[in-house]
Write a protein that binds this DNA or RNA. Structure first.
Lengths: 219, 219
DNA sequence: ACTGCGGCTAACCATTCGGTCAATGGCAAC
DNA sequence: GTTGCCATTGACCGAATGGTTAGCCGCAGT
């Protein structure tokens, strides 16, 4: 079939086994993402991966194991590398950067996000460890927001007087709302720059944006 | 559709057929709600409704038809009766009332909301008419918000200077975010009063709430 | 008494599901 | 060349799926 497995002797062997395993995972990821777990059959995965169904069961003992493998692979890029660039920014810029990163991530990983959402929506008990990881990520993000808002309030440059926890929760909710709006309504629903501006106005009152490195809107 | 033509004789005739149909719908609703469409089998519905599987197919031609029937029944209470009480309130109170109604509805109909969410998440093409209805409801709600914010801005009692459409979209997103937070995190996540206060502060600046007493924000 | 029909069911059907198994080709080691 | 392992496959399995069919039961109309 269409596989182009060119051996490049000098570098790592990259066995055919790994190749097929990879393609199975890739196909499964796609199918699970926009059809869900129960609606995706192993035969479909096999067909999409150009591989026999039996081979899937050779790589992964059960359907659940394949599923968990997909989940783990999806979770990999979910860690937003943030700390390094944040050091040079003031709090307001950090907050705005966080918001922007969240939305950009959602926009660029829509199918994965959709996947997790669908998964968490009804199969709460399957893949418990995974949910835990996602939750951890989530609350980490929230903690960063809380801290930033706290600092910003202490410095008195914040127009908002609500408790930081509530404010962060509200902001996070707004972001999540944008997320689901993006998933359900058309792809044009998410507008990171607009959202950042809105958050700025909400937190710091009506004023010019802090860091206007004005890039043209991409979408 | 949705006709409720109950003949009011002296006593309700209430044929056995209607009874069984009702119980099937009830069982199906419950199963669909927390297991999804594909994960729910007709045999399960039958067992849960204490009825033979064939009877289900006597009432409803296919599984999809049963599903749509359930959807329609779920959609009935979704129309927030709002206009009548709104007349007596000023714009700010109306906005706050809208927000509160949204959150209360979500809290009280969590399983239905979860159901619709899951449904819209992956099976976009199934039950297209339903999605249409939900969308209609949704954009109606949004339109009300837009109009209210517009008026409030014209009256100059609004601290926010963003375009009403953007503001409404942002507010709706925040509400949706609270929604999914409620669905995923514990039931304690939703706090209508706190949210209303927050929205008030966002739109009208830091001041005493218009109609409600200050409630301590819960975590 | 019989007929017709709405409500209901057990048994059945074809298909698909997750999963198994015996068998095979390729290839490195001996 | 043979051995042995890795990767891979088509054919197969029992269970469960959505859906059908033939027929039962009670009862109103005649």
């Amino acid at each position: 079939m269409g596989v182009s497995q060119i051996k490049v002797g000098i570098t790592e062997p990259r066995t055919a086994s790994q190749d097929s395993r990879d393609e199975i995972l890739k196909a499964a990821m796609q199918l699970f993402a926009n059809r869900g777990f129960h609606e995706t059959s192993m035969s479909e995965v096999a067909r999409e991966a150009h591989v026999s169904k039996a081979l899937i069961f050779w790589h992964f003992k059960t359907k659940e194991e394949l599923f968990v493998a997909v989940l783990n692979r999806l979770l990999e890029p979910y860690f937003i590398d943030f700390a390094e660039e944040a050091a040079a920014m003031d709090e307001r810029q950090q907050i705005e950067k966080l918001v922007e990163a969240y939305l950009l991530f959602v926009r660029d990983n829509a199918s994965s996000v959709r996947f997790f959402l669908a998964q968490m929506l009804h199969d709460q008990r399957l893949s418990e460890g995974l949910n835990e990881q996602v939750l951890k990520l989530y609350s980490g993000y929230r903690a960063m927001l809380v801290e930033l808002i706290t600092r910003v309030q202490q410095k008195n440059i914040c127009a908002l007087r609500t408790a930081p926890e509530s404010a962060a929760a509200f902001l996070l909710s707004a972001l999540n709302g944008l997320l689901i709006e993006y998933l359900f309504m058309g792809a044009n629903a998410i507008d990171p720059e607009g959202a950042v501006a809105m958050v700025g106005e909400w937190l710091f009152g009506p004023s010019g944006t802090s860091s206007s490195e004005g890039g043209a809107p991409s979408a």
